[in-house]
Computed example of a mutant assay.
Amino acid sequence: MDLQSEIETHRMVYDRLDGTGRKLLGSLTSQEDAVMLQHRLDEMNQRWNHLKSKSIAIR
């Protein structure tokens, strides 16, 4: 299996994790927890996008 296919097999997990995290953000009462979760989601999105870009670049 090539890298692009491997990434696509994990897309559903990524999408669910991102969606669940965003829903959770709306239910957090602690501003500190919300900021931390937002930071982690942003970091995850940056890594995901970087991985996709790298896989496209090496095709």
Rank of each mutant, 00 (worst) to 15 (best):
M1T: 04
D2A: 06
D2Q: 04
L3F: 10
S5M: 06
S5W: 07
I7A: 09
T9R: 15
T9I: 06
H10I: 05
R11W: 14
M12C: 07
V13Y: 11
V13H: 11
Y14I: 15
R16I: 05
L17M: 11
L17K: 07
L17E: 05
G19P: 07
T20F: 12
T20K: 15
G21Q: 06
G21C: 07
G21W: 03
R22K: 13
K23P: 02
K23V: 06
L24R: 15
G26Y: 14
S27E: 09
S27P: 00
L28A: 09
D33S: 09
D33F: 02
D33L: 03
A34M: 02
A34T: 00
M36H: 08
M36I: 09
L37F: 06
L37W: 04
L37E: 04
Q38T: 09
H39V: 07
R40G: 02
R40M: 10
L41I: 14
D42W: 02
D42K: 11
E43W: 10
E43H: 12
E43P: 01
E43K: 12
N45D: 10
N45Q: 13
N45H: 10
Q46V: 05
R47W: 04
W48I: 08
W48A: 02
W48D: 01
H50I: 00
H50P: 00
L51K: 01
L51E: 02
L51N: 00
S53P: 00
K54Q: 08
S55D: 03
S55R: 02
